[in-house]
């Protein structure tokens, strides 16, 4: 499987990362190198093997469905690059 320049541009768009046009070729080369290298995993017989989804053998805990934290909007928005009155501000989305 080989990634061409257009596919790299598409993946970059999916990841919401602007990649300058001039870097796409180099990046495609590097990504293809990595994807070629991981191809060796095909050699491993994994028939009937369950994919590993939990590192430690334990079931996830549940907690009471109750508010445990909050009530400090000042702290929540303190790091926002743009905002006012406890809101995060973004560029206009709806025309």
């Amino acid at each position: 499987m080989s990634l061409d320049k257009a596919t790299v541009a598409k993946v970059a768009h999916l990841a919401r990362i602007r990649v300058p046009e001039g870097e796409l070729d180099h990046l495609a080369g590097q990504l293809n190198g990595l994807l070629g290298w991981v191809e060796q995993l095909r050699e491993v017989d994994t028939d009937g093997v369950e994919p590993m989804t939990s590192v430690v053998a334990q079931t996830l805990r549940r907690r009471a469905d109750a508010v445990a934290d909050g009530g400090y909007p000042d702290r929540v928005v303190a790091n926002a690059p743009d905002g006012a009155e406890h809101f995060f501000a973004v560029p206009k989305v709806v025309e």
């Binding site: 995993l41 491993v44 994994t46 093997v49 369950e50």
Partner: peptide, 9 residues
């Protein structure tokens, strides 16, 4: 999914 299976191995 393949990598997660190899991980189990």
């Amino acid at each position: 999914l393949k990598a997660q299976k190899v991980r189990a191995r």
